[in-house]
């Protein structure tokens, strides 16, 4: 396809079709008539009818959610404040400190401190996300090879400060809440047919 026609920026020489908009009222009288017509047409009463019917039926049938006392359940693919998960069996942290989330983060809001621990493993001593910068794109969850970082459903994110942080303690599943930790079927999780996609490596055992 040639791009010539798009490069021609001499407006008016192209074959544009003008769409005729409805004429707007010009005299004060015409304007007044339009307002009156719109105010007293049927639409107003359609709305009022719904309200009055619900009022008559009583609160039991009302669908209003009393936020913030009540919250609607949120879809698993929703990307709100991050959570750090633990292994269900042992309760150990899933995060291995590979730093991929830190690397991929396009808002550059993730930082982590790691060290060589007594068990000769990489230990993540601190982990922080600057929510003031986070754009909740979900790359961190998608790149995580251990499904350690996921997005949770907690979307209330108001703060008095621009630099609003969460640290590891805020995000990590507490020990007593481990039984409530849900496996995450959303962003970053393995697809259902992941097994089929894997090429098997031969083993000599």
């Amino acid at each position: 396809m040639s791009l010539e026609q798009f490069k021609d920026r001499n407006v008016g020489t192209q074959e544009y079709r003008h769409i005729q908009a409805s004429t707007s009222p010009k005299t004060p009288m015409e304007k007044f008539t339009q307002v009156v017509k719109r105010t007293f047409s049927k639409e107003l009463f359609v709305g009022l009818k719904v309200v009055f019917t619900q009022m008559a039926k009583g609160p039991k049938t009302w669908h209003t959610v009393k936020y913030p006392q009540e919250k609607l359940p949120i879809g698993p693919r929703y990307r709100a404040i991050h959570k750090l998960l633990k292994l269900l069996e042992s309760g150990n942290e899933r995060c291995i400190g590979c730093g991929l989330c830190e690397k991929i983060c396009i808002a550059d809001c993730i930082r982590m401190d790691t060290r060589y621990d007594e068990n000769q493993r990489k230990e993540v001593t601190e982990y922080s996300i600057n929510l003031g910068r986070c754009i909740f794109c979900g790359y961190c969850a998608e790149v995580c090879p251990e499904l350690a970082i996921v997005h949770g459903p907690r979307f209330e994110n108001a703060s008095e400060q621009r630099a609003h942080f969460v640290i590891k303690d805020d995000m990590l599943t507490p020990v007593d809440a481990l039984k409530h930790q849900k496996e995450f079927p959303g962003f970053g999780a393995l697809s259902d047919d992941a097994d089929k996609k894997v090429k098997k490596t031969p083993l000599a055992y």
Binding site: I96, G97, G99, L100, K122, K199, P202, L203, A204
Partner: peptide, 29 residues
């Protein structure tokens, strides 16, 4: 590789990708 100290500056990784090794045909104990 996630916790290896080479963290991506690895020549083994580079050449594996360079040779496009996406499957393994050999094995040994």
């Amino acid at each position: 590789c996630g916790v290896c100290d080479k963290s991506g500056e690895c020549e083994l990784q580079n050449y594996t990708l360079y040779e496009q090794v996406d499957s393994q045909s050999y094995s040994i104990r």
